[in-house]
Write a protein that binds this DNA or RNA. Sequence first.
DNA 1: ACCTGAACACCGTTCAAGT
DNA 2: ACCTGAACACCGTTCAAGT
Lengths: 234, 234
Amino acid sequence: MSNPSTQAGSAASRSPASPAPGRTGRGRPPRLDQARTIETALALLDDSGLDALTMRRLAETMGVQAGALYRYFATKDDLLTAMAERMVGEVAAPDGAAEWSERLSGLAGSLRQALLAHRDGARVFAGTHSTGPNTLGFADTGIGILRDAGFADEEAARALMAVTNYTVGHTLEEQAALCPGGGGPADAGVLRDAVTAGTYPHLTAALPALTSLDFTPHFEFGLGLLLGGLRALS
Amino acid sequence: MSNPSTQAGSAASRSPASPAPGRTGRGRPPRLDQARTIETALALLDDSGLDALTMRRLAETMGVQAGALYRYFATKDDLLTAMAERMVGEVAAPDGAAEWSERLSGLAGSLRQALLAHRDGARVFAGTHSTGPNTLGFADTGIGILRDAGFADEEAARALMAVTNYTVGHTLEEQAALCPGGGGPADAGVLRDAVTAGTYPHLTAALPALTSLDFTPHFEFGLGLLLGGLRALS
DNA sequence: ACCTGAACACCGTTCAAGT
DNA sequence: ACCTGAACACCGTTCAAGT
């Protein structure tokens, strides 16, 4: 975890030809490689969003034809998987000295931050399933925290899945609300109008909280519920 | 809730021209309408999945040219929003006599079932933001359960968001694991290989649980954590 | 070995024109 | 009022051919 050097992950290893594993000095140096492609793709994601991230635009940004990308990634999905794997590499390892519940909430919060660090990061993560070292390391760390706290293997696995699924679900909403036509400042008004047009007494009472753009307390409330439930089990 | 008659929701009302609101007997009866289009789109979704659900294929299925669909839905996203709204209409109203925690878990379980009822249902739901009556009714019901249980407005709102985000995040994983190349029986082997290739002691111990395809206990475990956390607050 | 050029089989969306 | 036909501006992916 917290690995700044790019690891493409196992998905990228399904590429058609392993690109220059032992680079000899012969031939022109390639203008493309996996790491630079992933980095450029993440920059393009930040600039333009997932819907505008096309193989053609990425190729143009890298000064190359679209077909050339397929020497390094078998499909666009493989590229997205490598991007997700790269993002998870930014998850910070939690403080080993802290209480298990603090370590676990730190891990979840760090995953959220890693996804928030890139536009549409949660959508990229939710749409892929990396089995690269960063993703496996994340899971091993999380399950380790819970096993060390005394939870059985199955409970530890299920608890980490719950925390991860909640974190991804929350961050998906958070990023959708924050930016485009997805539900941000524009959509708060739309929701307000729809609620007041109908007869939704509870929704009306909760509307200020529901349309708040301060997502961190929302995230921490839900995370606190999961941790509270876990504490009740131990 | 539990509304079998199709309501397109507010997103569909943004359509370019309101289609035949007061139908007079004059003119040919239209070959298209919102309700039939949504139904056909859901059937096509079940047959072929979200990636194969294109405006052109949907039009072909309905015996019409692709452009004709745009008289009823301004964009493909509006159609997907109406499909999500239709799916949420299948959520069952929880038993009003039961305990608040049972009503809330019943609501979450019913949302999961409504999403599982259609191939890629969770992806469609996660990718849209309906403000139609079914979706608003769902939220009003959930927040109402919590307010009636004594939770303050803000807590009730945050708790329902947590439960909903968890349910969507879980079901996204469940449907990804179940079907295509997404991570099903095929991907269990891939994960197993990746884990045993590296050195992930905790992951190895948890692998049987992680690769289990029996998702209902997984879902209920996480839901139980959220409810346990809520009980600790009340 | 690495990339180009060009093609294949598609997309979502628009809009004049027909009926 | 409702739909067709045809176009516009794109997609992901493949692959012979060049260097």
